[in-house]
Design a protein around this nucleic acid. Structure first.
Length: 858
RNA sequence: GCCCACUUGGCGGAAUGGUAGACGCAGCGGACUUAAAAUCCGCAACCCGCAAGGGUGUGCCGGUUCGAGUCCGGCAGUGGGCACCA
């Protein structure tokens, strides 16, 4: 360390390269971040969790932001006297590991665990207050084995079903594709035309919980409104009716009735056709009789999800020749069409078309020349252009004429019920969650298929069902399926030869309960009740908005499921949710249009402030492109490891918090990082040579600044206004630097406060400053309680009031605290500028807001 | 198409209905240095003015209020979510 008495301030440098690892070691040795599986009774608990990373190989700036935000909360809450659980793990199953195996011949397990080792080391360099003893990866057999046990419990409780589902099937790769993996109707890897195929699938009965999942959103008062809204839309509750139409005899179809769902039973008199999905049984029946229909059905089935977008929503259909009878109008029959806009997965896969009051039905009817009959008119009686989709008054609707839309719906449902053909129902957009994937690198589904006994669960005593290590990725399809021995087992029920289920779980299953496992990560059961019931719910969950729907909804479902199976006793997994913004960066292109990394270029600023760039070490011009989310393809990424090498972890952490509110996207700039680093060096220099004068007024002023900052920064950390906390700490830093005349005690107090207030964000620097100010101490800032502001120092002796005339600022005045109104008004009126603005006009009203403003109305 | 959010200097942003632009980045001027880096001091919304000061100003139009970036209504733009949802 430099001798501050002889070294000029500007020469003192903080050596973060040796200092940061030293403090990390000190925290680890003192076990500062460890908590018991069951929290102690003498302190409140607080569970901070950031969405665990996928081990892709390296951490990226999004991780740095996510884990810094979480660490601020964890360290702050710890100082506030909470016992804080702050664990870390790995969402380690998934396709990239299999891709690595196929492309580079590395075993998925080795690839994954090597990546974890790398990323763990990088995260440790960030100085996060994580309890590493709780770490696990979802691909650890100790984890996925417990997941299998949990699945069997869910199965027993009736929360799991095996059912047929329409899937995107890639015939070349022999696997099911997610919608996102179907590009222009073709498989993303094979390029083969994707088929819609009906496949048996394991599915969680999430729809059973649809009402509760929707309802409980109202209790999540520390969740962002927009996330709750997105979930509500996704669950998609709608009120309507489900009822049957009789097929008429003349066309003789295979079944007697067709069921439809509608939200507008009041428009039933305006019906002009029925439409069914291409996958509907009636469509299949029609296809058998008519090759043209068969061709149309096949065409619809080929149409992948995104091809619909290419076709720009063009409505197409074909008449089946079948007809249905209207439930209310004697003798009226309507044609049944197959239409490409009807979804088999929603409602019943069939609907009645009322062109006058529905956009799509109108477009369809217009195209195919079907009748359009208006049965709802606006309450005002005005003429309207069809389709009219608002509420109004029923017309041309027999007994319903004159009823408002709400009453007409009720009347129509009552009549359908009286006729015994249907009833009022609540329909949900949410579908059951299919979890079967034809993949190797996932959790095996613990079931066995027996020709005699059917689908049989693996007995719990035989768990875990381990993934085999010797797998062959040279063939397409699922390696588990064509493994020579793995799937061949005897049936647990009858003992005869049978086959293992070779599908593995969707990786969303792995992440739907990991937060619960963290409470007792080594338990020989999925969770221990005492641990989860005392630690859950997670008090603060932090992650990207991209998980606003699926991950969070599945986790909410799992928590409810685990309540049913008796594993835990909480309803909601995450009491508080914070969604962070992305980290963005400028993008750069060379003369030939290739993307360039930021460290491949040099930027210079012109005299007018304009910026230009060239390729490093040459003169090739570079185009500075848009600021956008960091991505490998645009090469606008910055490697956190490189930043930590160059500036240290505290600089990276401080900068990522400083520039803007954490929920918004932030732009990463090299100059911003350098600015953050300058501030750190500045604080270090101040603490290394605190100095001090003897001016009492300056001392008091600094002390007031210190205590106001304590108050402001506390509020800011508390409320996720992290950029404001940074600004207030900067201000106090400036105040200390400017207060050379303040006495040594006041300067020390300010510097100690700076160390402690900044410690959630810059934990290493905080320890370093504390050690500078307390030579020889063994005390760690990580173990100190939070600072309290002294109320007597928060009050000023004088106040600055704004003086307005008619709401316009004309002057400011200094008045003693507690001055009475008359004194304040007199002082205000005495101001020269105020007099000028009053122009001698009489004052009609005097307004005084204590400590803020005086306003004269003339 | 439906739903939601956002819109403040050159840039990121700050502001319990009460002095708009804190703090930072970039910029400019100066000190130190042979020089550079580092550091320190200062300037900085726009328009008029030497200045004192005045005027304008938080996407646009209007309203509530003594007083609006903030509350209310409408419009525009940007971003996001969902979508042949019957």
């Amino acid at each position: 360390m430099s001798d501050s008495s002889t070294t000029p301030r500007a020469e003192i440098r903080h050596d973060f390269r040796s200092s940061e690892p030293r403090w990390q070691q000190a925290w680890a040795e003192r076990r500062c971040f460890s908590v018991p599986d069951v929290p102690a009774a003498d302190k409140p608990k607080y569970y901070v969790l950031e969405m665990f990373p996928y081990p892709s190989g390296k951490i990226h700036m999004g991780h740095v932001r996510n884990y810094t935000l979480g660490d601020v909360v964890a360290r702050y809450k710890r100082a506030r006297g909470f016992q804080v659980m702050h664990p870390m793990g790995w969402d380690a199953f998934g396709l990239p590991a299999e891709n690595a195996a196929r492309e580079r011949g590395i075993h998925p397990g080795k690839w994954t665990y090597d990546n974890i080792a790398n990323m763990r080391a990088e995260l440790k360099r960030m100085g996060l207050s994580i309890e590493w003893e709780r770490e696990f990866a979802t691909c650890d057999v100790e984890y996925y084995g417990q997941q299998q046990a949990l699945f069997l419990d869910f199965f027993k409780a009736g929360l799991v079903e095996r059912k047929e589902a329409w899937v995107n099937w890639d015939p070349v790769d022999g696997t099911v594709l997610a919608n996102e993996q179907v590009i222009d109707g073709r498989g993303w890897r094979s390029g083969a035309l994707v088929e819609k195929k009906l496949l048996p699938n394991w599915a969680f009965g999430i729809t059973k919980f649809a009402p509760q999942l929707l309802e409980a959103l109202g209790t999540l008062d520390r969740w962002p409104e927009r996330v709750k809204l997105m979930q509500a839309n996704w669950i998609g509750r709608s009120e309507g009716a489900r009822f049957s139409f009789k097929l008429t005899a003349e066309a003789a179809p295979p079944t007697g009735t067709v069921e439809v769902f509608t939200t507008r039973p009041d428009t039933l008199y305006g019906m002009s056709f029925m439409a069914v999905a291409a996958e509907h049984p009636l469509a299949a029946a029609a296809a058998e009789r008519d090759p043209a229909i068969a061709e149309f059905v096949a065409e619809c089935r080929r149409m992948g999800t995104s091809e619909a977008a290419i076709e720009q929503a063009e409505k197409r259909g074909i008449d089946t020749g079948f007809r249905v009878a209207h439930p209310f109008i004697e003798g009226a029959t309507f044609p049944v069409w197959i239409a490409n806009f009807v979804l088999m997965e929603y409602g019943t896969g069939a609907l009645f078309g009322c062109p006058a009051h529905d956009e799509r039905d109108f477009e369809f009817a217009t195209k195919y020349g079907l009748p359009i009959l208006q049965v709802v008119a606006p309450a005002s009686g005005a003429q309207v252009k069809l389709p009219f989709t608002d509420e109004g008054v029923a017309i041309n609707s027999g007994p319903f004429d004159g009823l408002g839309t709400v009453e007409a719906k009720r009347a129509a449902i009552a009549r359908l019920e009286a006729l015994g053909v249907g009833k009022g129902v609540t329909n949900w957009r949410l579908r059951d969650w299919g979890v079967s994937r034809q993949r190797y690198w996932g959790c095996p589904i613990p079931f066995i298929h027996c020709d005699d006994c059917g689908v049989v669960p693996v007995p719990k005593a035989e768990l875990p069902v381990r993934l085999p290590d010797d797998v062959d990725f040279s063939r397409p399809g699922n390696p588990l399926d064509h493994h020579p021995t793995w799937k061949h087992v005897n049936c647990p029920a009858c003992g005869k030869a049978a086959r293992r289920e070779t599908d593995t779980f969707d990786t969303f299953v792995d992440s739907s309960w990991y937060f619960a496992r963290f409470c007792s990560p080594r338990a020989a059961e999925p969770v221990t009740r005492e641990a989860v019931n005392s630690w859950l719910p997670v008090d603060q969950y932090i992650g990207g908005i991209e998980h606003a729907i699926l991950h969070l909804l599945y986790s909410r479902f799992f928590t409810r499921g685990m309540q049913v199976t008796g594993h835990l006793a909480v309803e909601e997994p995450f009491a508080g949710l914070f969604t962070q913004g992305m980290v963005t960066h400028e993008s750069y292109k060379g003369a030939d249009g290739r993307w360039l990394y930021p460290d491949e270029i040099d930027i210079s600023a012109g005299p007018d402030g304009s910026r230009s760039a060239i390729v490093k070490g040459g003169n090739e011009p570079v185009t500075i492109g848009r600021v956008e989310a960091m991505s490998k393809s645009k090469r606008n990424t910055v490697d956190p490891g490189f930043i930590i090498d160059k500036y240290g972890a505290d600089t990276a952490r401080w900068y990522i918090l400083s520039d803007n509110p954490p929920e918004r996207d932030m732009e990463w700039t090299e100059s911003g990082v350098a600015g953050a680093h300058r501030f750190i060096q500045r604080l270090y220099r101040l603490a290394a040579a605190p100095g001090g004068g003897s001016d009492a007024a300056a001392s008091r002023k600094l002390r007031q600044a210190t205590h106001r900052t304590i108050q402001a920064v506390t509020e800011a950390w508390e409320s996720f206004s992290f950029n404001v906390a940074v600004a207030r700490i900067h201000e106090l830093g400036n105040a200390v630097a400017d207060a050379d005349a303040a006495d040594a005690a006041a300067r020390r107090e300010a510097l100690e406060a700076l160390a402690r207030l900044a410690s959630p964000a810059m934990p290493h620097l905080a320890e370093e400053l504390w050690a500078l100010l307390h030579p020889g101490t063994t005390q760690l800032v990580a173990e100190l309680p939070w600072l309290e502001a002294d109320p007597s120092l928060l009050k000023a002796e004088t106040l600055t009031l704004a003086v307005q005339v008619l709401g316009k600022l004309r002057a400011t005045i200094e008045v003693p605290v507690g001055a009475d109104e008359a004194t304040v008004f007199a002082a205000a009126e005495a101001e020269e500028n105020v007099q000028r603005a009053l122009e001698g006009r009489p004052i009609r009203k005097r307004i005084h807001v204590k400590g803020r403003v005086v306003n004269f109305v003339v």
